[in-house]
Simulated scan of single mutants.
Amino acid sequence: MNTPKIAAMLGLATGLLASSASFAAEYNFKLHHFLGPQTPSHLETVAPWAEAIEKASDGRVEIEIYPSMSLGGTPPELVGQARDGVVDIVWTVNGYTAGLFPRTEVFELPFVHRNDPAATNLAMHDLFEDHLREEYKGLEVMFLHVHQGNGLHTVDKDVRTPADVAGLKIRTPSRTGAWTIEALDAAPVAMPVPSLPQALSKKTVDAAFVPFEIIPSLKLEQQTQYQIEGTDQTRFGTLVFQMSMNKGKWDSLPEDIQQIFKDHSGPEWLAQLGQVWAENDIEGIEQATAAGNEHIVLDQAQTDAFEKALMPVITRWVDEANKAGIEGEALLQSAKDAIAAHNQ
């Protein structure tokens, strides 16, 4: 090959490398989470959030998402992975690390959260700086959110009253969920949600507290016959999720990049997220009923009976909070007031 051709090829290669470098992101992040890439959670929460930040940064930020625990470990280890800097960002369930976020638990309690995830999302945002931030040491919380709320899914039990639940083995992902089950004289079984279909099919559990949105992803209509909720979509508590970054990574970012993350994690996003999860819940229950399952909506008197039966869960949380040096009653009232304000 003659010298001019070699020079031309070298020049082309150099130009391509320079062009590639010019498009390389300045700030790269690994985002790890526990659900699959085809779940609504991934497609409508995790991925859109990351894409919006990348777009707003004009290519300076790249967020590589690793679903299904593909970087290793188990779901309860995600918070530790973020704190230790094993990964940069995690999306996870607070309750997978029981007792680590006791203040935030107040939003999971039955009949504190009722039926509006957007209202609870915004209430947590309102209370975060003054009441919640201190329990997220080692993390920079991008946002907290909840799902629509826990419906009761049973393999073959028609449930209309608290007494109907007694004796069942019920899956829960959280401490507050376990307290709810115990208050109904049932047996809590802790497990991450990906393990649920097999547990139901083998009757390791008789039922589960999960939202309806997860039905299509896990094909729960194939393992259950009944989906139960209270009147006006009232649920038996909910679950708090967090999107959090390693604090050292956050502190290393310039203010303009930090601001992009903040701009896409605030009230507008939280309200949108609440609506998305509420709509996905409707789609989930439609799939279950189309498969022949029975959707039981308790009337007001039946719902009130469950609320009365679950009051000890509230008392238990307040007592635990007080023992931990948290003003339980005051935080409970603040949470209720904030949710009510956004419900209006």
Rank of each mutant, 00 (worst) to 15 (best):
M1W: 03
N2T: 11
T3S: 04
A7T: 10
A8M: 12
A8L: 15
S22T: 11
S22D: 00
F23K: 09
A24Y: 00
A25P: 03
N28R: 09
K30W: 02
K30S: 12
L31Y: 11
H33V: 05
H33W: 09
F34I: 01
P37A: 14
Q38Y: 08
H42I: 00
L43H: 01
E44Q: 14
T45D: 01
V46T: 08
V46N: 01
P48G: 02
E51Y: 11
G59H: 05
E62D: 12
E64R: 14
I65V: 13
Y66W: 14
Y66S: 14
P67G: 12
M69W: 13
P76G: 11
E77T: 13
G80C: 00
G80N: 11
A82F: 08
D84W: 06
V93W: 07
G95L: 04
A98V: 08
A98D: 01
L100S: 14
L100M: 14
R103D: 00
T104G: 01
E105M: 06
N115H: 13
D116L: 00
T120P: 13
L122T: 12
A123L: 06
H125V: 00
H125K: 09
D126Q: 10
E129I: 06
H131D: 15
E134S: 15
E135M: 12
K137T: 12
V141L: 08
F143G: 00
V146L: 06
V146K: 01
H147R: 02
H147I: 07
K157Y: 04
V159P: 05
T161G: 03
T161D: 12
P162D: 06
G167T: 05
K169Y: 09
S174K: 05
R175A: 05
T176V: 15
A178D: 09
W179E: 06
I181R: 09
P188C: 08
A190F: 15
P192M: 06
V193G: 08
P194R: 02
P197G: 08
P197E: 14
Q198L: 15
S201K: 15
T204Y: 11
V205C: 07
A208I: 10
K219G: 15
L220F: 09
Q223P: 02
Q223R: 12
G230E: 04
G230N: 10
T231E: 09
T234D: 03
T234F: 01
F236M: 04
G237W: 04
L239H: 02
F241N: 05
M243H: 01
N246S: 12
G248P: 07
S252R: 14
L253Q: 12
P254F: 10
Q258P: 07
Q259K: 15
I260D: 03
F261N: 05
G266Y: 14
P267T: 15
E268V: 13
A271G: 13
G274K: 04
Q275T: 13
V276M: 11
A278F: 03
N280V: 04
G284F: 04
G284Y: 06
G284V: 03
I285T: 07
H295T: 00
I296M: 02
I296N: 01
I296G: 01
V297K: 04
Q302F: 05
Q302K: 10
A305N: 02
A305G: 06
F306K: 02
E307K: 13
A309H: 10
T315K: 08
R316F: 01
D319M: 08
A324F: 10
A324V: 02
G328Y: 06
A330H: 09
L331Y: 03
L332P: 08
L332F: 13
Q333P: 04
S334D: 15
K336P: 03
I339S: 11
I339F: 07
A340W: 10
A341W: 09
